[in-house]
Simulated assay, not measured.
Amino acid sequence: MEWLEKLYDETEHVKVRFVGYATETSRFDFGLVFTNMFFGKPLVICMQTGRSALLDSEDVKNVEYLRKAFHLPSLSEAEHLAAIVEEYVPKHYFVHQYE
């Protein structure tokens, strides 16, 4: 059998927020999972495609990154997503996860 090392197995009660919005051309439904894992970055999940990304306030400002991460058709769609998610992502939050 192949060697396997378990890195972590955590259980945590988390806060989840669901946000939906529509533009002139598209509808988006996202889940935001707020956890102490992943250096405090919320896990943002597109409920329609299943694509997800860990985002902090700096990541939200990078609309090209959002476009690629969520396979959005245009930069304007990514700008709409940034405007919505920015409201919920902590402004400056950093957790030392592995100490």
Score class of each variant (00 low, 15 high):
89 V>G: 02
38 F>M: 11
36 N>Y: 00
42 P>N: 08
4 L>G: 10
8 Y>S: 15
38 F>W: 10
76 S>T: 05
9 D>R: 00
1 M>E: 09
83 A>D: 04
9 D>A: 06
42 P>G: 04
92 H>P: 04
93 Y>T: 01
29 D>G: 04
48 Q>M: 07
50 G>Y: 02
51 R>F: 02
70 F>G: 03
72 L>W: 02
10 E>F: 03
33 V>N: 06
77 E>F: 02
68 K>D: 06
37 M>H: 10
42 P>H: 03
75 L>K: 11
56 D>Y: 00
8 Y>G: 12
31 G>K: 11
51 R>E: 08
22 A>S: 15
45 I>D: 03
13 H>T: 14
58 E>M: 10
21 Y>K: 09
98 Y>S: 14
4 L>S: 15
34 F>M: 13
98 Y>A: 12
43 L>V: 06
18 F>C: 13
81 L>F: 01
64 E>S: 09
1 M>Y: 02
24 E>T: 10
51 R>W: 05
13 H>N: 11
25 T>H: 08
52 S>T: 04
47 M>Y: 08
21 Y>F: 15
99 E>S: 09
16 V>G: 06
68 K>M: 08
37 M>E: 14
30 F>E: 07
12 E>K: 02
60 V>C: 09
55 L>P: 09
37 M>D: 13
45 I>C: 06
45 I>R: 07
46 C>L: 04
32 L>W: 01
94 F>K: 13
52 S>P: 02
57 S>D: 04
36 N>K: 14
78 A>S: 11
30 F>L: 01
22 A>C: 14
97 Q>L: 08
84 I>G: 07
11 T>E: 14
27 R>G: 14
88 Y>F: 15
99 E>N: 11
66 L>F: 00
71 H>Q: 12
44 V>T: 12
13 H>A: 12
47 M>S: 10
7 L>H: 05
72 L>D: 00
47 M>E: 14
95 V>H: 12
60 V>K: 07
89 V>W: 03
52 S>C: 13
27 R>A: 15
17 R>G: 04
98 Y>D: 13
44 V>K: 07
39 F>S: 06
87 E>C: 07
32 L>H: 02
63 V>Q: 02
58 E>V: 07
20 G>W: 01
71 H>S: 11
30 F>K: 08
12 E>F: 11
69 A>I: 07
27 R>Q: 15
21 Y>Q: 11
55 L>T: 00
8 Y>R: 13
47 M>A: 12
55 L>S: 04
14 V>M: 13
35 T>L: 13
28 F>K: 11
95 V>R: 13
68 K>V: 01
29 D>F: 09
71 H>N: 12
58 E>K: 10
53 A>L: 03
10 E>T: 10
1 M>N: 04
71 H>C: 05
39 F>V: 00
33 V>Q: 08
43 L>D: 07
63 V>P: 05
94 F>L: 08
88 Y>D: 13
22 A>T: 14
64 E>F: 03
89 V>R: 02
59 D>R: 10
37 M>C: 11
92 H>R: 15
